Amino acid sequence: MRPLPLLAALLVITPCAAAAAVQARLTPELAVGGGWASALLVGSDFPHWQTHVAPGVAFDLSTGPVVKILSSYRLTWSRYGPDASSLLHDGALNLRLRLSRQVDLDLRASVEQVDFEDISGSASGDPSAPPTAASLAFDAGPVLRWRLSDRTTAEASLAAGKRANDLGDGASVEEDFQVGVLSLIHRFSGIFEAGVQYRRVRNRTTDALWDMDGDGGQVSLGIAPWGELVVRGYAGLQWSRFAADERSDRYGYTGLGASLPVAPSTTAEIAWSYGANTVVDGGTEADRSTFEGTRQVVWSGLRMELPWWL
Rank of each mutant, 00 (worst) to 15 (best):
G233L: 10
G233T: 15
G233M: 11
Y234G: 04
Y234R: 12
Y234M: 08
Y234H: 15
A235Q: 09
A235R: 12
G236F: 03
L237S: 14
Q238G: 08
Q238A: 14
Q238R: 12
W239M: 11
W239S: 14
W239L: 15
S240D: 13
R241D: 11
R241C: 06
F242Q: 11
F242N: 02
A243D: 14
D245S: 15
D245N: 14
E246I: 05
E246C: 08
R247T: 00
D249R: 13
R250M: 07
R250H: 03
R250P: 05
R250L: 13
Y251F: 09
G252R: 02
G252W: 01
Y253L: 00
Y253P: 07
Y253A: 08
T254L: 14
T254Q: 09
T254G: 15
T254N: 10
G255F: 04
G255I: 09
G255P: 02
L256Y: 12
L256F: 14
L256I: 12
G257A: 15
G257M: 13
A258L: 14
A258P: 04
S259M: 11
S259E: 14
S259Y: 09
P261Q: 12
A263L: 13
A263W: 15
P264E: 15
P264Q: 15
P264R: 13
S265R: 11
S265C: 13
T266E: 02
T266G: 06
T267A: 00
T267F: 07
A268L: 12
A268H: 02
E269K: 11
E269Q: 15
E269G: 14
E269Y: 15
I270L: 13
I270W: 05
I270H: 04
I270E: 00
A271W: 06
A271I: 00
A271M: 09
W272A: 15
W272F: 13
S273K: 09
Y274P: 03
Y274D: 12
Y274F: 12
G275N: 06
G275E: 01
A276F: 05
N277G: 01
N277H: 00
N277W: 06
N277A: 02
T278D: 00
T278L: 01
T278I: 01
V279I: 04
V280Y: 02
V280T: 10
V280E: 04
D281A: 06
D281W: 00
D281L: 00
D281C: 04
G282N: 03
G283C: 02
E285L: 13
E285I: 08
D287G: 03
D287I: 01
D287E: 05
D287M: 04
D287Y: 02
R288H: 12
R288M: 06
R288Y: 10
S289H: 09
S289N: 10
S289D: 04
